[in-house]
């Protein structure tokens, strides 16, 4: 099926089998392999991308569902020469080891900051009617959809804190 998705600002038209997931369309068809396949079932978060600015698991979405959507992958966030502040913070804080979950963590972190800015609640939010107190516990809960088996969790918290300050 003909499907046009704007990926990292560029309109890309694909003729895909309806079975192709958004993740496989990015990785195998567009050769944007920064989005990772860790579980293929929404259980790890390594495939996290931003669709119209919102973070989702690209493994549990079909490419054809995204005709007309704006998709941002890790490749659209910054390059090795011009790192985005979030990428720079992950590097500086050593917020990864093997690096396989990292693109998903970074996309998720950016999506998460947008959700906090929108005052979306989480399981850690005590007062649902007040402005979010963006504590470390809030940050941790909101990043719990991204597993890091190397367990760089404390460094990820530090990196997001640091970048959030810079991006604010």
């Amino acid at each position: 099926m003909k499907t046009t998705i704007t990926v990292n600002g560029e309109a890309r038209t694909l003729d895909v089998d309806p079975r192709v997931t958004l993740l496989d369309a990015l990785r195998e068809h567009l050769r944007l392999t920064g989005s990772k396949k860790g579980c293929d079932h929404g259980q790890c978060g390594a495939c996290t991308v931003l669709v119209n600015g919102v973070r989702i698991n690209s493994c549990l979405s079909l490419a054809v569902m995204h005709d007309g959507d704006q998709v941002t992958t890790i490749e659209g966030i910054g390059t090795a020469e011009t790192l985005h502040p979030m990428q720079r913070a992950f590097l500086t804080e050593d917020a990864f080891q093997c690096g396989y979950c990292t693109p998903g963590q970074i996309c998720s972190a950016l999506g998460m900051l947008a959700e906090v800015a929108e005052n979306w609640p989480s399981q850690e939010t005590a007062d649902l009617t007040a402005k979010i107190a963006f504590t470390d516990d809030e940050l941790r809960e909101r990043m719990s959809g991204n597993i890091c088996r190397c367990s760089a969790y404390p460094q990820i918290v530090a990196a997001i804190r640091s970048a959030a300050g810079e991006l604010a």
Partner: peptide, 19 residues
């Protein structure tokens, strides 16, 4: 309906709930 918000945010992950 705070119980509804609490229940929803107890399920899945933010990425799953967004979709």
């Amino acid at each position: 309906y705070p119980v509804l918000t609490q229940a929803i945010v107890a399920g899945g992950s933010p990425q799953l709930r967004n979709k």
